[in-house]
């Protein structure tokens, strides 16, 4: 079941998302971000109890999906409390092929968030010119 969850996340994180450090608990800043209600939606979309099926594995409010990032949670909460975070931060290892879980479904989908619209003050666009195409 964990593999299913990871595969779903990996599908979801296949698109690069620039993440503001104040949102990204791990501070790495270029993984993905998922609200808990999106995780709920992921459950519904997949029509299974898959995500909930890993409840408790990592001890995060019964939502192992989030808790899969224990390292992240610990860093965000130095007191060791891995209580329910506002966001799930996906390690860059996910979606970059370093965690090689089997593909689960070629069609898995979930709602994706555009981090650039997370807050008015967080727009992580390149501010430089790029030597890209001109003519």
């Amino acid at each position: 079941m964990t593999i299913r969850a990871w595969a779903a996340i990996r599908q979801w994180a296949g698109r690069p998302v620039v993440l503001p450090p104040e949102v990204c608990a791990c501070g790495i800043g270029h993984a993905g971000v998922m609200r808990l209600d999106d995780i709920d939606r992921l459950d519904r979309i997949n029509g299974i109890n898959g995500i909930n099926g890993i409840n408790g594995i990592n001890g995060v409010d019964g939502r192992g999906l989030v808790g899969a990032h224990q390292r992240v949670s610990r860093r965000r909460r130095p007191d060791g409390d891995r209580g329910r975070p506002d966001v799930a931060c996906l390690s860059p290892d996910v979606g970059r092929g370093r965690l090689d879980f089997p593909r689960w479904s070629p069609d898995v989908g979930c709602r994706r968030l555009d981090a650039a619209r997370w807050s008015p003050d967080v727009v992580h666009r390149r501010r430089t010119s790029s030597l890209g195409p001109v003519d």
Partner: peptide, 27 residues
């Protein structure tokens, strides 16, 4: 085409993908 996130892409051409992808990733 101008932002290089991470490489040159095009809003109207879905076939221009980032490194390692045959097209712009989309699910």
């Amino acid at each position: 085409c101008r932002t290089f996130e991470p490489t040159g892409s095009c809003s109207v051409n879905p076939e221009l993908g980032p490194p390692g992808a045959a097209a712009r990733p989309a699910i």
